[in-house]
Write a protein that binds this DNA or RNA. Structure first.
Lengths: 227, 227
DNA sequence: ACTCTAGGTGTACGGCGTACACTCGTCAAG
DNA sequence: CTTGACGAGTGTACGCCGTACACCTAGAGT
């Protein structure tokens, strides 16, 4: 403590958690494409190679980031109606994913499930089972939900955009799309999907699926395929 | 024609189409991660910068590849049952995407819809409309299908893998997942999702959605939200 | 006092996308 | 036949990336 105590506050030593948090913050702020090991190191006032004492490589960094985000999802609420329980939790996941727009792509790009994702899926499966769905049906149901389980509906293209006036040439080439765009006539029509209420679309599909599952459950549905 | 006519067949000049086809073939063969401008140029016996006379940059190359793949999807068959028409076309899309496993990720990563994708979605919307769904319902229905429209069910994690014996420690930590895995007991049980019949899962969700849509159509469903 | 070690450093390598200036063959206009 | 424009392919170079590897250093345990 003899010298250089005031020039800059002495460093808190790095650790895996600080690295992951900084990475998430950086991705939130500048987008996932701008997240490089070098840029992240710079954000932490450290030389790039220092990061490798805490994460094995960039893939593992991304694994950790995915887990951190999934860990933000609320646990399932208690309740007698399994559809409400599942619906609420998925909407919580959706809120988390909207806070971290890069996360959907990162989660998808993981080659294997990370621990937090496994834990999430496990309790989700538990909610279905507790609601009375057979293990068999639960299995197919979770596949059917796909990435919607984690709150992203996989919107093919981001619905934001310049949203100029409808292009008549485009409308001529793609008449049906133009018709749909015209139908979504609220706060500024746009070309293909702009002006849609994403939340509504998400819940529309979610409820359609949950209702379908409930119908199958009541019917005692089973996959009677043999081998 | 005086010299070097036999050393190597004289070059067919490059063009955009040859570049795209080579890129698709290279991605098919070696994976999308191994597709670099330099590697592609090498495959075409050309210096890397030569490619830039035919595509503006790598993003545009990927756009072109996505379009080439989407162009492989069959046009809709004719028929009175809209569900059969849509179902058949989507399964065609799925076959295409299975031929080009990298394509789903590439299509997702496009920031805007490419012409072939627009054309595909347009005729798909046409099939719904012709089946008697309102423009309103068609709109939401297409959102609900999400990427399934293009044949990929977004399987969160690839179902292939080492597929070792079920890990008892994992089973203890994730009991519900273990139960589901045990249920999918055919040709070799695996840890989380292995051993599933992907095609079955895809069609399960597809048919659940299509049946739900048909029910809504018969009910004259409309989104009566105001503003 | 000595060693061990965890964490941070510095240098370097190979690969990437691509900007920019160039060469060269073809072909139409003069 | 000359010439000049032009489109296709070339060569060099820059800045970024992830990360291997050797090194240093401060503090803890003996």
């Amino acid at each position: 403590m003899t010298r250089q105590e005031a020039t800059h506050t002495q460093r808190i030593p790095l650790n895996r958690d600080r690295v992951l948090r900084a990475a998430v913050a950086l991705a939130d702020a500048t987008g996932i494409d701008a997240l490089s090991m070098r840029r992240l190191a710079q954000e932490l006032d450290v030389v790039p190679m220092a990061l490798y004492k805490h994460v094995a490589n960039k893939e593992e960094l991304l694994d950790g980031m995915a887990d951190a985000v999934v860990g933000e999802i609320d646990p399932p609420a208690a309740g007698p109606d399994w559809r409400r329980v599942v619906r609420g939790r998925i909407l919580s996941a959706r809120r988390v994913l909207l806070r971290h727009p890069w996360a959907a792509r990162v989660i998808e790009s993981r080659t294997g499930p990370t621990p937090a994702v496994l834990a999430y899926l496990d309790t989700m499966a538990g909610s279905f089972r507790e609601g009375g769905l057979s293990a068999d049906l639960t299995h197919h149901v979770m596949h059917a939900m796909g990435s919607r389980l984690l709150g992203f509906s996989q919107e093919l293209f981001d619905t934001s955009g310049p949203s100029g006036p409808p292009d008549p040439a485009l409308a001529a080439r793609y008449p049906h799309i133009a018709e749909l765009a015209a139908t979504a006539a609220h706060d500024g029509g746009s070309t293909v999907g702009g002006g849609c209420d994403d939340q509504f679309e998400f819940e529309f599909a979610l409820d359609l699926l949950l209702d379908g599952f409930e119908t199958l459950r009541r019917q005692g549905w089973t996959s009677e395929r043999k081998a």
